[in-house]
């Protein structure tokens, strides 16, 4: 299927026309075709069905398909737009486009908000923030006492929750990020501007004449 490089082109489920994807994202048609080269590699690393399963996503991120990580789970879930447990090519391109340097900051801010709104309540709540801090500490093998964690969470919350209602809404989040732009640092991948350089083989597999 999508795992076999062949001129007799048969695409996996979820494949979408690069021309359409380019029109809807920050990528060019060539970029999308180069991303397809990466997608083929990731989606056939364990289960050879041309879809990215969570284990394959974890393998690409951590070189370990069994590594549990709260944040990788959240990213996977946000990429999985159809919520069917796998990332299809169209979902992969549309989601990665958020991380493109040319994508408006407002989209990055909104994505980061959804990322941190663990329970999908439309707010980032104090308990969620503490849970994420504890997950980060656990992942990093760092130890901070509960008092210190509480202090960090309280201080951050007091700065972000400007309305003082015990939760951070999208508007407060956007204002907080404007005051702390470093929070969006990992929402931009400069490499995406040069994705065709990383996967030059897209030219061989292009289906678009003037790509």
């Amino acid at each position: 299927m999508g795992c076999v490089r062949s001129r007799h082109i048969k695409h996996p489920p979820g494949y979408e026309d690069p021309v359409i994807l380019a029109a809807e994202t920050s990528f060019t048609v060539s970029d999308v075709e180069a991303l397809y080269e990466l997608f083929k590699k990731l989606s056939c690393s364990i289960i050879k069905d041309g879809l990215i399963h969570k284990e394959e996503f974890q393998l690409a991120l951590f070189r370990n398909s069994n590594k549990e990580n709260l944040f990788a789970d959240r990213i996977f879930d946000l990429f999985d737009l159809k919520r069917n447990g796998v990332i299809e090519f169209g979902e992969f391109v549309r989601s990665l486009s958020i991380f493109h340097p040319n994508t408006p900051e407002a989209e990055k801010i909104a994505f980061a908000f959804r990322l941190y709104d663990l329970r999908h309540t439309g707010f980032i709540e104090r308990e969620e923030l503490k849970e994420m801090v504890l997950a980060l500490l656990n992942e990093s093998d760092l130890y901070l006492s509960d008092d210190v964690v509480e202090t960090i969470v309280d201080k951050t919350f007091s700065q972000a929750d400007t309305k003082g209602d015990g939760k951070i809404d999208p508007e407060e989040w956007a204002e907080f990020v404007k005051r702390n732009p470093s929070l969006l640092r990992n929402m931009t991948l400069p490499y995406l501007k040069d994705i065709t350089m990383g996967f030059p083989s897209f030219v061989m597999n292009s289906e678009v004449n003037d790509a």
Binding site: L38, L42, N180, Y191
Partner: peptide, 24 residues
């Protein structure tokens, strides 16, 4: 540590470093 921004701390997670996807 009391001066740390919790979100700044969280953003250092390896799980949020998607650049790794592009490493050969």
């Amino acid at each position: 540590p009391a001066l740390m921004n919790a979100f700044e701390l969280i953003s250092t997670s390896q799980g949020l470093n998607l650049g790794t996807l592009f490493e050969k």
